[in-house]
């Protein structure tokens, strides 16, 4: 409305509604048709699609050492040795001759996978503990609350560094499980708070009057109304998990033999890419990570608007 109405919100003057404004208002009839949500989902699906299509149209075996000459630049660029990029390795190669494009095709979905898996496990724990604490209350609540409060104060990266340094190479799934141990606290607290207020609401009381079992009340009456919160919390957790995973990998503590975006950045830094000005080597994975985070952020903002109509603007 900014371009039509006068600045006073009291609406002293009539804002004339253009067709565009009416169309924008119509959008709110279906809250899921939110542009932020659509763009965010599009970005993430793009990364997944890159992983799938890449395996079909590009050779995933190029991720192995010595697939090409070392430290080749992408097409159209030149490295310190004056070599020009070739179409055999469109995004260049790394210090061990691995094809960067293949690394990204395999690595980007891997990073996303770790984030989603860790978040799924964390959310499951959070839903279980949050519902238990909020609904059963009493001792159970005390224990869960203290536990999650204590866990929130422990910096996850510190523990993970110690753990990984002690155990060496681990698989992607193992890493996701380890990260999940540190992302269940905030959904637990969020769900507990929601359940505490919801259990006093009229419809829960009505369900109790109807002789509903605890399970029915928790999962049939309360859960559907929590879906927007759960989604929001899930997406926020995916972000946290990816940040944690990439943080570990950049320190060289992730899986040693599986390509991930963080591992690629680690090797770039480790092989002096910064000094030799091979910026594409660490730059391209960083851009992919940035796109992933922007996608997640947009989804989160979109979900916020879906669950809280007051945030929707004309």
């Amino acid at each position: 409305m900014a371009d039509h109405s006068t600045p006073n919100a009291a609406g002293a003057q009539t804002p004339d509604l253009t067709a565009r404004q009416i169309r924008r208002m119509k959008r709110f009839d279906n809250p899921w048709r939110n542009p932020k949500l659509i763009w965010g989902a599009g970005l993430l699906l793009g990364i997944v699609a890159m992983g799938i299509l890449g395996r079909i149209f590009w050779d995933p075996d190029l991720v192995f050492t010595g697939s090409g000459l070392t430290r080749q630049p992408p097409v159209g660029l030149e490295n310190l040795r004056g070599q020009v990029g070739t179409w055999a390795h469109p995004l260049g190669t790394d210090g061990a001759g691995r094809d960067v494009l293949a690394l990204l095709i395999i690595g980007a979905p891997n990073s996303l996978f770790v984030g989603v898996l860790a978040s799924l496990i964390g959310m499951s724990i959070g839903i279980f503990l949050g519902f238990s604490a909020g609904f059963i209350r009493g001792r159970v609540d005390d224990v869960i609350r203290v536990l999650s409060d204590v866990m929130i104060t422990i910096p996850p990266l510190l523990i993970l560094v110690v753990f990984q340094a002690a155990y060496g190479d681990i698989s992607l799934t193992m890493m996701a499980i380890l990260i999940a141990c540190f992302v269940w606290q905030s959904p637990t607290r969020l769900i507990r708070a929601q359940v505490l207020s919801m259990r006093e609401s009229g419809y829960v009381q009505m369900a109790r009057l109807s002789g509903a079992s605890t399970m029915h009340i928790m999962f049939r009456e309360m859960m559907p109304n929590l879906v927007p919160y759960l989604f929001g919390s899930f997406i926020a957790n995916v972000t946290t998990s990816i940040v944690t995973a990439v943080g570990l990998e950049v320190l060289g503590l992730g899986p040693q033999r599986i390509p991930t975006l963080g591992r690629t950045i680690y090797e770039a830094i480790n092989s002096g890419a910064l000094i030799q000005n091979l910026y594409w080597w660490w730059g391209i994975p960083t851009i992919l990570l940035a796109l992933m985070f922007i996608g997640l952020l947009l989804i989160n903002l979109g979900l916020d608007e879906v669950s809280n109509p007051r945030l929707r603007k004309l």
């Binding site: 609401s201 009229g202 419809y203 009381q205 009505m206 369900a207 009057l209 109807s210 002789g211 509903a212 009456e221 559907p224 109304n225």
Partner: peptide
Amino acid sequence: AVFQDPYACFNPFYRVNHALKFPFKR
């Protein structure tokens, strides 16, 4: 029981007949 707040007594996720149907079956 009939409670004070008719706005809160129905689960917003379901159609209103859920509140009538469910206890009847239960």
